[in-house]
Amino acid sequence: MSARPPPPAISVRGLRTAFDRQLIHDRLDLEVRAGEILGVVGGSGTGKSVLMRTLLGLNRPYAGSIRLFGIDVTAADDAMRRAVNRRLGVLFQDGALFGSLTVAENIAVPLREHARLPPAAVEEIVALKLAMVGLPQDAARKLPAELSGGMRKRVGLARALALDPELVFLDEPTAGLDPIGAAAFDQLILELNRRLGLTFYMITHDLDSLHAICHRVAVLAEKRVLTIAPIAELRRHDHPWIVEYFGGPRGRAALGGAA
């Protein structure tokens, strides 16, 4: 049974979403392989966040099918959807931590809700997750408001990893971090991908992240996924937006740094 290749983590066919009679996505196809780090880029208003929310089931599509781990979630009932969601982790932009809970309690929320573990084991697993995302143990008793933006993101990631998801969504994980913090976060994602085989779906504007860690990059434009390819191939693409994005001064600078 291990010889069979795993189904793609995400497989989207003919997706159509709309808000207020305004079409956001139309006939959108996307396939994310198990075990890859996919970068998702696109101009403002191309529906990067809407697509992520739709994949997470926070948004209902008008048409099309979404398969996560080979399971058709557009046709799934609530129980099935919850079961699939337990295999997903999400890091929202500012961490979306529960403000009234400490860091340790935040990370323990999914463990206490979905797993029956001895309390001491929960504490230790929380400590383990903190170590996994590179946070010091004394952060455990702090409240989210007492943390810096970069630390909040790490806690958010630790909470997303609480139940060992197979697929992790990241919404602009390096936005608002200083270059050192951003690079460290990139390395963390790369390490989790290598060591635990996690699949990452990462919305980002950070050209350095795209170069440093993404196996492939999906470009959202014209209401669909324009192309999905390793970054080296994207540079040869002739779509004006892609040329502008990677050929502009910032795009070239990031390339120069990576080369």
Binding site: A104, V126, A127, A131, M132, Q137, R141
Partner: peptide, 10 residues
Amino acid sequence: LVQGLERPVA
């Protein structure tokens, strides 16, 4: 891997 990440609980 988890053995290597063991830290004392605060």
